[in-house]
Amino acid sequence: HNLTITQGKLFFHYNPKLCLSEIHKMEEVSGTKGRQERNDIALKTNGDQASCENELLKFSYIRTSFDKILLRWEPYWPPDFRDLLGFMLFYKEAPYQNVTEFDGQDACGSNSWTVVDIDPPLRSNDPKSQNHPGWLMRGLKPWTQYAIFVKTLVTFSDERRTYGAKSDIIYVQTDATNPSVPLDPISVSNSSSQIILKWKPPSDPNGNITHYLVFWERQAEDSELFELDYCLKGLKLPSRTWSPPFESEDSQKHNQSEYEDSAGECCSCPKTDSQILKELEESSFRKTFEDYLHNVVFVPRKTSSGTGAEDPRPSRKRRSLGDVGNVTVAVPTVAAFPNTSSTSVPTSPEEHRPFEKVVNKESLVISGLRHFTGYRIELQACNQDTPEERCSVAAYVSARTMPEAKADDIVGPVTHEIFENNVVHLMWQEPKEPNGLIVLYEVSYRRYGDEELHLCVSRKHFALERGCRLRGLSPGNYSVRIRATSLAGNGSWTEPTYFYVTDYLDVPSNIA
Rank of each mutant, 00 (worst) to 15 (best):
L505K: 07
L213Q: 14
Y396V: 06
S268I: 15
H416E: 09
T347F: 07
L225N: 02
E388C: 13
R400N: 08
R481C: 02
S257V: 11
V334W: 07
T401P: 04
T288S: 10
L440P: 00
E350S: 15
E258L: 07
K432Y: 11
T386H: 03
I438E: 02
G412P: 04
G467F: 06
E227W: 07
C266I: 13
F285A: 12
S239D: 11
G436V: 13
G322L: 11
T502L: 12
L228D: 15
M427I: 13
S274A: 15
L455P: 01
E388V: 10
L505Y: 14
P475N: 08
N421P: 11
R286F: 13
N255R: 05
Y504C: 14
K287D: 03
E430R: 10
A330L: 15
E417A: 15
L379R: 00
S479A: 07
K236C: 06
V501I: 06
E279K: 02
C456F: 02
N490W: 15
A263K: 03
R376F: 13
F246R: 04
L235Q: 06
T401G: 00
E495A: 09
L237H: 02
H425R: 14
N255P: 12
W216C: 12
Y445D: 00
S458K: 14
R313Y: 06
E265D: 12
L505Q: 06
G476W: 00
E281C: 02
P245I: 14
W242Q: 09
G412V: 08
H454S: 02
I209A: 15
E389N: 15
G472Q: 05
K361V: 04
C266N: 13
S509W: 13
L235E: 08
D222M: 08
S305Y: 08
N477G: 14
F226N: 08
S492I: 13
F289M: 03
A395Y: 09
E465R: 04
A330R: 15
F462C: 02
F337Y: 11
P300A: 10
F337G: 12
Q219C: 04
A309E: 09
L232T: 11
E465Y: 12
L369C: 08
P270L: 03
H461T: 09
E221P: 04
S474E: 15
C231R: 01
S486R: 02
L277V: 02
L470F: 03
K361N: 08
Q252M: 08
H454Q: 13
R376P: 00
G449N: 06
Q384S: 14
G472R: 05
V324P: 09
E451A: 14
C267T: 04
T347C: 14
E265P: 08
S239E: 12
V214H: 00
F226C: 11
L426F: 04
W242T: 11
A336T: 04
S458C: 12
T307V: 05
F499M: 15
V397K: 11
S444F: 15
G306P: 11
C468F: 04
P314R: 08
S342T: 14
N295M: 12
N206M: 03
L293A: 14
H416C: 09
V457S: 03
R483M: 15
Q252A: 10
Y292A: 05
G436T: 08
E281F: 14
F215A: 13
I209N: 06
P332V: 06
Y445S: 05
N208H: 06
V439R: 05
L487M: 11
S305M: 06
L464G: 11
F462H: 12
R481E: 14
S320H: 06
P244W: 10
F372D: 02
A336F: 14
Q256C: 04
E281R: 13
I438N: 05
N339L: 10
L453E: 02
E279L: 12
H371W: 08
M402P: 03
E260W: 09
S315Q: 08
A309L: 14
K302H: 13
E290F: 04
F462S: 04
N422V: 03
V327E: 14
G489H: 14
S239N: 04
Y292C: 01
I276R: 07
E452G: 14
Y504N: 04
V359W: 04
V358M: 15
T333P: 03
E260C: 11
V331N: 09
K278G: 03
I366L: 12
I377Y: 10
G476P: 00
S492C: 09
S257P: 10
S344P: 10
T288R: 05
T502N: 08
S257Y: 08
P270F: 14
T497R: 10
P245V: 10
R390N: 12
S398N: 05
T494V: 03
T288Y: 14
R481Q: 01
P238T: 11
C391A: 00
D503Y: 14
V297Q: 14
G489Y: 08
Y396M: 12
V443Q: 00
Q384L: 05
Q256M: 10
N490H: 09
V327W: 02
K317D: 07
S479N: 05
D273G: 04
R286D: 02
E356V: 15
V334S: 12
S283A: 05
N208E: 05
C231S: 01
Q275F: 03
Y478R: 00
Y498R: 10
V329S: 10
N477M: 14
P300H: 09
S251W: 01
E442I: 05
L379A: 09
S239W: 10
A395C: 03
V345Q: 12
D385F: 08
S257W: 04
P354S: 06
V359M: 10
G412R: 11
P300F: 12
L228W: 14
T307A: 09
V397P: 14
Q380W: 10
E362M: 08
P349K: 04
D450S: 02
F355M: 11
E433V: 11
N295S: 11
V423S: 07
P434R: 03
H294L: 15
G207S: 02
N326A: 06
S257F: 11
D222S: 11
T272H: 13
V411I: 06
Y375I: 03
T307W: 06
R301K: 05
R316C: 01
P354Y: 08
S509H: 15
K317N: 05
V329L: 13
F355N: 14
Y212T: 14
G436A: 15
F285D: 13
D291M: 09
A484Q: 02
N255S: 10
E362N: 10
T347S: 11
L321D: 03
S392V: 02
G449P: 09
H416K: 06
F419T: 11
V414W: 01
S284V: 12
Y292N: 07
T497L: 12
D229W: 10
S262Q: 10
N422P: 02
E279I: 08
E265R: 13
R286S: 05
T241P: 10
C269L: 10
P238E: 07
S248R: 11
G322P: 12
N339K: 12
A381V: 03
R390P: 09
K271I: 14
E221V: 06
L232M: 10
K361E: 10
K236N: 13
K302G: 05
A395M: 10
C468M: 10
F289Y: 03
S315F: 13
T373S: 11
E258S: 13
F337S: 07
S492V: 07
R313F: 14
P312N: 11
E417T: 14
K361W: 10
V414D: 00
L235D: 08
T415W: 02
E227A: 06
M427G: 13
P238R: 08
H461I: 11
